[in-house]
Design a protein around this nucleic acid. Structure first.
Lengths: 231, 231
DNA sequence: AAAAATAAGTGTTAATTTGACACTAAATAA
DNA sequence: TTATTTAGTGTCAAATTAACACTTATTTTT
């Protein structure tokens, strides 16, 4: 069945781009690849690729990310569409943008993707720098409203670690006492017996997320940061 | 310049769909059209159409909405992508979804689009019902966090009116005194001398948004509703 | 002209949450 | 044993929240 309705429309290249933020104890980083193919060979860019015939955009994002970085089963959120007719100089491509935040350690060194400090991000191809800026803004908002960040850290983490993560995202200092109080008030954290002794002499207790109440409690996290609500 | 890189990719039909919520004194409504063209002729659907060669998706959404409803310069937000390979049975189409909230009164009767109470939305083509659900969830979240709703009402409005709007969106009762207090605490509202006498004997004062401080104050609206944060 | 009806508008209080503030505790290294 | 380092904790005043019901202005009815 071929309908005139569809035939009259010109199809468009559809792509996905992945903005992967990384955190590992100190600062917020971003994952980039140096293109070893034309066009724009040799330049830095986000991980991107076309949506294939029989996959959804979400699947395409997963596939592209895995093929370029080896990262598998990363939960990415689709957050923007870049679709200006002339955004790529060669042919028209509409790009669906996804972002995620992961622990930098889980990246295998076999792949050519490289971490950059967010504030030292090099010039990227096309409109990719703008994509990074928008993704960072989205991340700030998300972090203020949802405890997603717990999921994105490893399955266990210390309070000093999560504090540093929030400080990295917002590029600001947080009051340790007040922040800890809010964290614990959520009742989402379960204290483990184990301590992380790598980062201090005293050692900090590990916590994990209480998944059983996670879904219902998700909303108690509003106002998570004092006066910091993103954008 | 034709690059192998692009040639290897199969292009895809790209469409936009517009979810337009309407409010007018009482309940939340949704704008739909009955298709007078194939495929799915005669069925109810959202306002949709393809992205053309030389327009951005945002422009396409504006054009499609205007052509089907006459509505012009409506600020719509792109909030989701529906892209499962088989979401339309005829050919593959990836749809970019936009939503907005407007006053039902501004719709001209010359067009065939029709308002439905949100809770009496008929079955729609393809995955359009799911699009409506997702847009409604997004609207709830937005309304809790931003004072956008003021912009979507007419340029002047009464406090009882805006209270009803929030109640319609959240399908819940709000405490009039507490809600009024929060509204005024934002200092975003300027009281006018004029009263709306249509809806009560006593009459309710009109207010308008103080645009001069609107931008900076936008964030003071967080926690606008008691315990209601959407999703 | 008085009374009834309707929706607008307003205040108090107790409980909770916030943000500002600095010391003690635990472990290791010197 | 002393010094060093980072984890972990408590108080208080101020602000915000949510629960609560009566008065006011106007029109309609009698």
């Amino acid at each position: 069945m071929t309908l005139d309705f569809y035939n009259k429309n010109k199809k468009i290249h559809l792509a996905v781009d992945c903005i992967i933020f990384g955190f590992n104890k100190e600062e917020l980083e971003i994952l980039l690849i140096q293109r070893d193919f034309e066009p724009e060979k040799g330049k830095w860019s986000l991980m991107g690729g076309f949506v294939e015939e029989n996959e959804s955009p979400d699947d395409a994002a997963q596939r592209v990310l895995k093929s370029l970085t080896g990262l598998d089963h990363i939960y990415m959120e689709q957050f923007a569409v870049f679709g200006a007719p002339d955004r790529e100089p060669y042919e028209r491509v509409v790009s669906l943008c996804y972002f995620a935040l992961i622990n930098t350690e889980i990246l295998s060194t076999e792949y050519k993707a490289r971490w950059f400090a967010l504030d030292q991000c090099p010039p990227l191809i096309f409109d990719h720098n703008e994509m990074v800026t928008q993704a960072h803004n989205k991340l700030k908002k998300k972090a203020a409203l949802y405890p997603i960040l717990f999921e994105l850290l490893s399955d266990k983490f210390t309070i000093p670690q999560i504090t540093l993560l929030y400080e990295a995202i917002y590029q600001n200092q947080l009051d340790k006492r007040n922040f800890t109080r809010k964290l614990l008030a959520s009742k989402l954290l379960i204290k483990l017996d184990e301590k992380d002794k790598e980062n201090s002499k005293k050692g900090a207790y590990y916590y994990k997320v209480d998944k059983s109440i996670y879904k219902e409690k998700i909303m108690t996290f509003l106002n998570f940061l004092p006066g910091w609500y993103g954008e």
